[in-house]
Computed example of a mutant assay.
Amino acid sequence: MHGRKLVTVVLDEHTVTVYDADTPIKAVPRRSTTDLNRTKAKHQITTKGQP
């Protein structure tokens, strides 16, 4: 349903919320209070004809 879509992730003090445009998809409690420094996508979307 949400495969290959760009989403927005909002980190609050107590929750992590994932949005598709302005619609929240999922909100879960944060398990850690440390700062998020970096993220990296695990898969790249490629199209035919691109190197």
Rank of each mutant, 00 (worst) to 15 (best):
M1V: 14
H2C: 12
G3S: 07
R4Q: 07
K5G: 00
K5N: 04
L6N: 13
L6A: 06
V7T: 10
V7P: 09
V7G: 03
T8F: 07
V9L: 14
V9N: 02
V9K: 10
V9S: 04
V10N: 07
V10P: 00
D12R: 13
E13H: 05
E13C: 01
H14T: 14
H14D: 14
H14M: 06
T15P: 01
T15L: 01
V16L: 15
V16I: 15
V16P: 08
T17I: 03
T17F: 06
V18T: 12
Y19A: 02
Y19S: 03
D20M: 00
D22N: 12
D22A: 08
D22W: 03
T23P: 02
T23D: 14
T23R: 11
T23V: 09
T23L: 05
P24I: 00
P24F: 01
P24S: 03
P24V: 01
K26S: 13
A27V: 12
A27K: 15
V28K: 15
V28Y: 10
V28I: 15
P29H: 09
P29V: 02
P29M: 06
R30W: 00
R31Y: 12
R31M: 07
S32L: 00
T33L: 04
T33N: 03
T33A: 02
T33W: 01
T34C: 03
T34F: 05
T34L: 03
T34Y: 05
T34E: 05
D35M: 01
D35Q: 07
D35A: 06
L36R: 03
L36P: 00
N37W: 11
N37Q: 11
N37E: 12
R38T: 09
R38N: 13
R38D: 15
R38M: 10
T39W: 08
K40N: 03
K40L: 04
K40A: 02
K40F: 03
A41I: 01
A41R: 10
A41V: 02
K42G: 11
K42D: 12
Q44H: 04
Q44M: 04
I45M: 05
I45R: 06
T46N: 08
T47P: 00
T47G: 11
T47V: 13
T47L: 12
K48N: 09
G49H: 10
G49F: 04
G49V: 05
G49K: 13
Q50Y: 08
P51G: 11
P51S: 10
P51F: 10
